[in-house]
Design a protein around this nucleic acid. Structure first.
Lengths: 338, 338
DNA sequence: CTGAAAGCGCTAACAG
DNA sequence: CTGTTAGCGCTTTCAG
């Protein structure tokens, strides 16, 4: 497709000619160089504005040898839509951070079997570095990239032996706080719901285990549901547990969505919450404070995620030693665990 | 910051020298030109791969006079985080579409009072055109941009007199379907909850009104809540209505989040759903099928949004006459309106 | 089939 | 303070 219907876009040389100066002067004037006297500078700026002229960033960047762009890679689960309510929050916070720095943000979703596209974005000079959201099963690949000097920062769990910088919530502590809270409320048989194949949920499970141990409570492996599931599966599980008289007095779920579904299933069975079963979720999605009963949950400060990721990415670009940032985690107590 | 620690990045000339050919040949080989015999082509491709060489896209694009990039502008509500569960879905679908076309996606969030940044992205040659998500109060500004030939496509409501191409769900029909469904269930006093200052919600309200009229039901203006609000406000409103004996037998809410909050408030007051009050939401968020009772709602096919937006943007770039795309809307009947 | 040469639009020494 | 000059890394005529 032809870029335009014939009419050439106005460029620096045009401004230069109209102003009766060289392009160097225009370039300097438009970038606010103090070499150019203010009068000339204003005249040129005004002229450019009146013609809707903007410096061609592509050309400028090529000349400057830096695209001033960071790449954001979304690692969504298979062909599924991204369900994590955080992703959008992080993306927003990233966008703002990057824009505030006067840089650009190139968004990509990692395609199946196209892992080389991450490296490619950097090696083709398209971006200065990568922010990767989610780790999924790519831990090893990310490690490899980092070791080869691809600048990056990853949102996810602090896995042992990672050689890439990670920003994430304190999942271990989150799981611990939630569970300890339930214990303090007198619960002894606390169920766990979460997909522990997901690194972040794995850490939350560790926190759960730790809190139980600390309280001298023996964990009942039958009260664990480690895999992802739909609504039907949740009901089955709950009914199964109730029918087996595997009585439980609390549930810690790794996401608010799961927790809310569970509350629905329990209510359907006539189980009072928090009367008979207390529930704690994770994420603090908007709805948590709106459902009935309002949901106790663990909250992570995503507003800080963008800044933290960009900070680590810059350190990575600068070749500074790798480090992680753990964002503090907070227990929000509401009615479901009163 | 220095781009790299001294070591120059491998570039085309290096490959050329090592292969004993000119850069022209390398360029042609790497782009798969049939001018180069397959043997040479493979040799060069292999060499490039072994050195992790990638064509510098910035340079290539400058030469080709086209950045092959589309800009996506998020119009979030004030400083608030984007709450619309759709935004992420649309973004995902856009990313995939754009990537499939071998193009790039530059993400921006519109900053307050920086409306010129949209025009800027195009005039600076950074992007071929814009996809704008949300209209908010920028209808007039968008009109102006479109009239000045800035190529774009907008996700939002089909407003009268728009001179920019729009993709959106059929909000009028959505509101109509939801309301008619409630009427068919025997409801006569149907309340409406939604922020009608938002163009899309405005159309849903029109659909609501239309369905009522068609059924010969007189709308009670007291059963309308036109503005955004938090949880507290929802309870107050509901309690106010109940206390005033403004009895109502159904609620149509412009979002599932609102609908679910409402169900919580009603349950707290001991109002059985759908026994005494039927509820219909909008959006079909993941949780809708998981809450209790499961929520009847209106669904829009966001998976198609990306393709549609990109299609219209390309037409806009090509200078084709403006047109809109209305994505079909579907009523998902669940327990809350049985 | 291949290379030399000319630039894409801009910036930054360098020399006035 | 300002212009001249030389590229940034690539693609593509054009002439072999």
């Amino acid at each position: 497709m032809p870029p335009d219907k014939g009419r050439r876009r106005v460029q620096m040389i045009d401004i230069a000619r109209m102003a009766g100066v060289s392009t160097s002067t225009v370039s300097r004037a438009l970038s606010g160089s103090s070499l150019i006297p203010e009068a000339t500078r204003n005249r040129i700026t005004e002229l450019a504005r009146s013609l809707h002229y903007r410096v061609n960033v592509g050309a400028a960047n090529l000349r400057k040898g830096d695209q001033q762009t960071i790449g954001v890679v979304l690692l969504s689960d298979s062909t599924q839509m991204i369900s994590d309510p955080f992703v959008l929050g992080i993306l927003g916070s990233l966008t703002d951070t990057v824009n505030d720095l006067g840089m650009n943000l190139l968004l990509t979703r990692l395609q199946e079997n196209r892992e080389d596209q991450m490296r490619s974005m950097v090696e083709s000079g398209q971006v200065n570095g990568l922010v990767v959201i989610g780790q999924l099963s790519l831990h090893d690949h990310l490690n490899e990239l980092a070791q080869q000097g691809i600048p990056m920062a990853v949102w996810g769990a602090n896995l042992e032996g990672a050689s890439y910088p990670v920003v994430g919530g304190d999942n271990l502590r989150g799981g611990y706080l939630a569970t300890r809270h339930l214990i303090e409320k007198g619960c002894r048989r606390i169920a766990f719901f979460g997909d522990t194949s997901h690194p972040e949920a794995g850490l939350r499970f560790q926190g759960y285990t730790q809190a139980l141990q600390e309280a001298g409570i023996e964990a009942d492996p039958r009260l664990r549901q480690h895999y992802l599931f739909g609504d039907a599966r949740i009901r089955e599980t709950i009914e199964g547990w109730l029918n087996q008289h595997l009585d439980f007095d609390a549930i810690f779920a790794c996401s608010d969505v799961t927790a809310i579904s569970l509350m629905g299933a329990l209510r359907e069975r006539g189980v009072p919450i928090p009367g008979q079963v207390r529930v704690v979720g994770y994420d603090d999605i908007l709805l948590s404070m709106h459902v009935h009963p309002t949901l106790t949950t663990v909250r992570q400060p995503i507003e800080q995620a963008g800044r933290a990721l960009v900070a680590l990415l810059f350190e990575s670009i600068a070749g500074a030693p790798r480090r992680n940032i753990v964002l503090p985690t907070e227990l929000i107590v509401r009615d479901s665990s009163l």
